[in-house]
Amino acid sequence: MLEGKLRILLHCNAAQVNSVEIRSSRPQISGRLLEGNGVAQALSKVPVIYSICRQAQSLAATLAAEAAGSDTTLAGLPLGARLEALQEHLWRFFIDLPGQLGEKPLLKEFAPIRQQIVQQVKLLDSGAPYDDEDDLLGRLSPEIESMVWGGSSVEWSGQGEADLQAWLESGASSVGKLLWRASQLLERSYTGYRVTCDQGLLGTDSLVDVVQALGRDDQFSAQPWLQQGHPEAGAMARHQEHPLVTALVAREQRAMARFVARLLEIDRLLNPAQAIGMGRISLGDGSGAGWVETARGILVHRLDIHHGRVQRYQVVAPTEWNFHPEGPLVREVLALAGDNVDLLRQRVQLICLSLDPCVSFEIEVYNA
C-alpha cells in the first residue's frame, strides 16, 4: 500500500496569497512494482499496491490489459467501482466535511449505508454471488436521499439557483446544514481581481492525448499536463453543464460548485440506468490503456505487454491533475485574501476537500 501525503505551503502578505507550493511525498514507483510479472499476476497485485479506490484501480487495470490483447474478464468490477465511488462521495460529506468545520463526523447516519456497501464489495471480491445491481441501489436510494437531500434527489437536481440557496438555508438535511456553513466561509473569500482558474476540465475527449503523453514520457504521471494547460479532474467535469454548477462557477464559487457536482454524482450513481464511465484504448503491439471515472475524477492505467509479461506500467491519478504545481488548487488559492490566517487556512482546507486528494494533506501559512 503506497500513499504519502501533501504539504501545501502558502506564502502571503497582508492582502493576499503571493505563492503556493505543493510538496508531495506520493511515491511514483508503484507501476514498476508490476513490471516483469505475468498479466494475471500483475492484475492480482493491483488492488494491493493501489489500495485507495482499489475497485476502480482493478477495473482500469483489467480494461488496460484487455485493450492490450489479454484475455481477462470484468466480472463484478464495474459494480464494485460504482459502490466504491458512492462510498467515497458519502464519506466526504458525512466524515470529512464535518471535521473540516469543527464538528463531529456523522457516523450514526453513515454507518448503516457503509455497512451495506462494504458487505457487497466483500462478496464481489470473494467471487460469491452478489445482489442484483437494481435491487441493491433500490434499497440504498431512499435512505441516502433522506440523509443527503432531505427528499427526492430528482426534484433537488432539477431546482434552480434560488431553490438551492433556499435548500441550504432550510437545514432540510444533515448535508445541507454542513454545506450552508461551508458556503458562508467561502463566500466573498477572493480578492478584488478575477479568479483565473479556467484551464478546462479533464474529460474523456482528452484521454487519447493523455495516453499518448504517457507513452512518450515516464515522468508524465507525476505532473501531467495537456496542451491547453492543467485541467481539473473530478465530478465538476461530468456535470459542468448543469445549471447549478454553471451558476456557481459564474459567481466564482468553484468549491461550492464542486460540492454540488458531487451531490449530482451521488444521484447519478444511485441510478442503475446510468452506467459508470469506463473504457479501453487499444494502442497495438501489446499496449493498451483503461480508464474509469472515479469519485475524484478520471483514473488512467496504461501498460505494455511483451511475451506475456508486463514490460511497462503507468498510472495517472486525479490527484496529480488537481494538485499539480500549476494546477487548479494553486490557481484558485492565489486569488484568496491573506489577511486573516485562520480564515485563510479554513478556506484552503475546504477548497482542498472539494478537489479531494486521495491522501492526507496539511496546510502551512507563512506571512511576509
Results as ranks from 00 to 15, higher is better:
T73Q: 15
V208I: 12
P357I: 07
D304G: 02
A14K: 13
L59N: 06
E88F: 01
E362A: 14
R23V: 13
L207H: 10
Q184G: 12
G80I: 10
A295Q: 02
E320A: 13
A317N: 06
E88G: 01
E293A: 13
A233V: 04
V330I: 10
L79Q: 12
A15R: 13
L101R: 12
L2K: 12
L264K: 05
E88H: 02
C358P: 08
L136N: 05
L336A: 08
Q115F: 06
I144Q: 04
I113D: 01
I113C: 03
D198L: 01
L106M: 15
R268P: 00
L263S: 04
E169I: 02
P47W: 11
Q57C: 05
Q28V: 13
N271A: 11
E21G: 04
W91R: 05
E265Q: 12
V348K: 02
N322Y: 10
H89R: 04
A42H: 10
G176Y: 07
A61H: 08
V46D: 11
M1H: 12
P328Y: 02
V17G: 09
G279I: 04
R194D: 07
N271Y: 04
L355V: 05
G277P: 01
S70Y: 04
E252V: 02
N18P: 00
E3A: 11
G76S: 15
Q253G: 06
R312E: 12
R262M: 02
R347T: 08
E103M: 14
V118D: 09
V348F: 06
L207Q: 09
D205M: 01
G308R: 04
R331T: 03
E241R: 13
V330G: 06
F220V: 09
L168P: 02
D131C: 06
V359A: 06
L353N: 09
R347G: 09
E3T: 14
P357N: 06
A337C: 12
P325V: 03
G176F: 08
S173Q: 07
S24T: 08
L101D: 10
L106V: 02
V341P: 01
R26E: 12
Q16V: 12
V195I: 10
S25C: 03
V118R: 03
N271D: 15
